[in-house]
Amino acid sequence: MTLPIVTLGLKRPLEIEVTVITQTFWSGLAEGRFLLARCSHCSRLSFPPRRICPDCHQLDFTWIEASGRATFYSLTRIHNSPPRYNLLSPVSVAIIDLEEGIRLLTRLLPTDQAPVVGGPCQLVITQHPDGMHYAARPAESS
């Protein structure tokens, strides 16, 4: 299942360094897929991808695809970010909980629907002139 891709006209505010650990994740975004690393030994899911599993310290991971269905844990609008971060103004961020059990911080995209703490949200992929990133937006209640 591929995720919606939203085009944002500005470059990502910080240059993304792709590594052997994270390249599968970044390549996945370009294909519309948001990948989570799963420890091959203890099955713990990690995001972002990392070198060792923090629970068992083993090195081997496989990948699973996130559905994109999530819940808002918290959110805020930031009015004092330096200009380079203002792809959209004001800068909005949210902490979201993916249904797979992963929590992450991301950009919150404006929609007609107001985001609500505890309410449903959709993980989306954002396309920038210099590559892909990701964001969240409110979703219809299921």
């Binding site: 910080l14 972002p48 805020t76 004092n80 330096p82 971060y85 800068v91």
Partner: peptide, 30 residues
């Protein structure tokens, strides 16, 4: 911003240290 967030996975969203406390605040209020 770069001190309180992963520079590839969090900092690009532009959240400063006090932004995290704001996230605490919203959740606490709720």
């Amino acid at each position: 911003i770069r001190a309180v967030g992963d520079v590839n996975f969090q900092a690009p969203f532009g959240i400063p240290p006090i932004g995290w406390y704001a996230l605490d605040c919203v959740r606490y209020m709720e």
